[in-house]
Write a protein that binds this DNA or RNA. Structure first.
Lengths: 143, 143
DNA sequence: CTTGACTCCGTACCCCACTACAGGGTTCAT
DNA sequence: ATGAACCCTGTAGTGGGGTACGGAGTCAAG
């Protein structure tokens, strides 16, 4: 079935998304992508949009979101009616998470910059400045 | 042994770092913290600095670094002798990693902001702006 | 010197996110 | 109509990062 077709096979989806076939099935089981049409042959017939979704998942994973969180992110879109405020609240909460992460990463980056400068300088003694980054009262923060 | 002492027991370290005792031992096995002094009793005697290190590890984990990457971060310090250029190179490489992470987070944040604005609007949540963000050629990024 | 909290080590188990079979069925170019 | 290349289901195994025993030794307050 190499010939032109409206649908994509699972192999094609996997290839275009840069993952393995098994991963596509896995994401289906986990509810991250919809279960596609299934003709009598049993083969999955995907529409092209799923590749986008797959790529989004890969990308979000790279940002440290768990599959569970990604599912949440993806479900934000499906606000049928009414729950708009709730959807917005979840989005804002994710935004807060992201901002906290970015702030911490900035600190770590600064620490590394200082370290590399110390290196360039006459730097005698060893103290490790990266511990100081991110140093604050116990990160009792949940999760 | 509630009385004042120079050293910390593993239980104390765990408590002060917000993790379980087993986790402290686990990090020791993994080389993330030094193996502490061991008097004949076999009990681990920690100096207070380890708590800081433990907290750093927790924090870095929250930023999406793997334990292996964290070990690398922790090993970066101005070397007493020589190897300065190597340390600096590694620091700069970590800085690059961090900047990539931050850029991705910025994108995600923008997408979420757009979503939340769309949500705030009068209409239905309409099309999904989240999928549009981060939509680009396959994130073949290593790691 | 007992008692309860703490520690030791080793092994086993857990969740997550895949990844790899095994043993079949389907498609399609030749 | 055959064979390579694909797909199916189901189960099992992997690696990362812990978490939970079990059975025994240690510490210090009463």
């Amino acid at each position: 079935m190499k010939s032109a077709a409206q649908y994509l096979t699972i192999g094609r989806v996997a290839q275009d998304s840069g993952v393995g076939v098994e991963t596509v099935r896995f994401y289906e089981r986990e509810g991250l992508i919809e279960r596609p049409e299934r003709p009598p042959s049993g083969y999955r017939h995907y529409e092209p949009g799923v590749v986008r979704r797959m790529r989004f998942i890969q990308h979000a994973k790279g940002l440290g979101f768990s599959l569970h969180e990604i599912a949440e992110l993806l479900s934000l879109r499906v606000a049928p009616d009414g729950t708009c405020a709730a959807v917005q609240a979840r989005a804002l909460s994710k935004i807060r998470d992201i901002e906290v992460k970015m702030a911490a990463l900035r600190k770590m980056r600064r620490a590394l910059l200082r370290l590399s400068e110390a290196c360039a300088g006459p730097g005698p003694a060893s103290e490790c400045p990266i511990l100081e980054a991110l140093d604050q009262e116990s990160p009792r923060a949940r999760h």
